[in-house]
Simulated assay, not measured.
Amino acid sequence: MSVKLGIIGGGVMAEAILSRLITAKVYSTYEISVSEPLSQRRDFLQQKYRIRVAFDNKAAAASEVLLLAIKPQALEAVVSELGALQEKPSLVISILAGVPLSRLESAFPDKPVIRAMPNTPATVGAGITAIAPGKKVENHHLSLARSIFEAVGQVVEVSESLMDAVTGLSGSGPAYVAIAIEALADGGVAAGLPRAVAFQLALQTVLGTATLIQESQLHPAELKDRVTSPGGTTIAGVAQLERAGFRSALIEAVQAATRRSQELGRS
């Protein structure tokens, strides 16, 4: 096969993945084929990345690796369209939220299938992707999947039973962090800071703290203890966060998103 990676669906996450793969030279432009129903989106992808782009899903499916990047409700239609395809991929990778391996393996019998959950920071190469292997997946399939998703960030392997929790935490987590940054900036404005300065302070504080924890390997609780001095400003703020249930709110948000992912998987 001349096409090494076929992607069905040309949305934001698909573009993030193919862009980073090309930049990291994991694949060359001529080795990638994308199918996308919207003509405007097809034109954009072809002009920007110089890859093969088509309306027909069969063009992307005739590849060594097939990445499904469509809406979950479109899966049945896509599978039906590919039913008569003679040349089929050696590995199928799905980033469809809530779609279990059992359903994917039924759609692609006799093929190794990997279920993956990337998150939106993948668009800047700072994402994290959880992958769950199907029954027919071997080590070289996992290595191939890792090479694809390592182009957009870190990769962890989990059992499929944990994928809903992954969705609730890292899949939905960027929204929680964005709300926290927005709220910190609003707090700064309420305390008298100009909006632009408050936003810059909030954003860099979150980014810098995450970088510090990552590079120092400090436990978050230890970093918090280092910042809070007796009778100081930080402990006053932390006490207010505890009174407002900030910690519980985040825990419950992850649990709620996990439950919703489970519901979507059953629908």
Rank of each mutant, 00 (worst) to 15 (best):
M1F: 08
M1G: 09
S2Y: 10
V3S: 08
K4W: 10
I8R: 10
G11A: 12
M13W: 10
M13R: 03
A14N: 08
A16F: 10
S19D: 13
T29A: 15
Y30D: 15
E31S: 07
E36H: 07
P37N: 11
L38V: 09
R42E: 04
F44K: 11
L45Q: 11
L45P: 00
Q46G: 11
Y49T: 05
V53N: 01
A54T: 15
N57L: 06
N57Q: 02
V65M: 12
L66H: 03
A69D: 06
I70M: 11
P72C: 11
P72I: 06
Q73I: 09
Q73N: 13
S80W: 06
S80Y: 10
L82T: 05
L82G: 01
L85C: 08
Q86V: 10
E87W: 04
V92Q: 13
L96W: 12
L96F: 12
A97P: 01
A97D: 02
V99F: 10
E105C: 09
E105Q: 15
K111I: 15
I114A: 12
R115V: 06
A116I: 07
M117H: 07
M117E: 04
P118Y: 05
P121S: 10
V124D: 03
V124C: 06
V124I: 15
A126N: 08
I128K: 01
G134S: 03
G134V: 06
K135D: 03
K136H: 11
N139C: 04
H140F: 07
H141F: 03
A145M: 06
R146V: 10
E150R: 12
G153Y: 09
V156I: 15
V156G: 02
V158A: 09
V158P: 00
E160F: 09
D164A: 15
V166G: 05
V177E: 00
A178E: 04
D186E: 15
G187M: 09
G187T: 07
V189K: 13
L193Y: 06
P194C: 10
A198E: 01
L203F: 13
L203N: 11
V206Q: 07
L207E: 11
L207W: 06
G208I: 11
A210L: 14
A210M: 13
T211D: 14
T211C: 02
Q214W: 12
S216H: 01
Q217R: 15
Q217M: 10
H219G: 00
A221T: 08
E222Q: 14
V227M: 07
G232E: 12
A244V: 01
A249Y: 02
E252S: 12
V254L: 08
V254A: 15
R259N: 03
S261Q: 10
Q262R: 14
G265M: 12
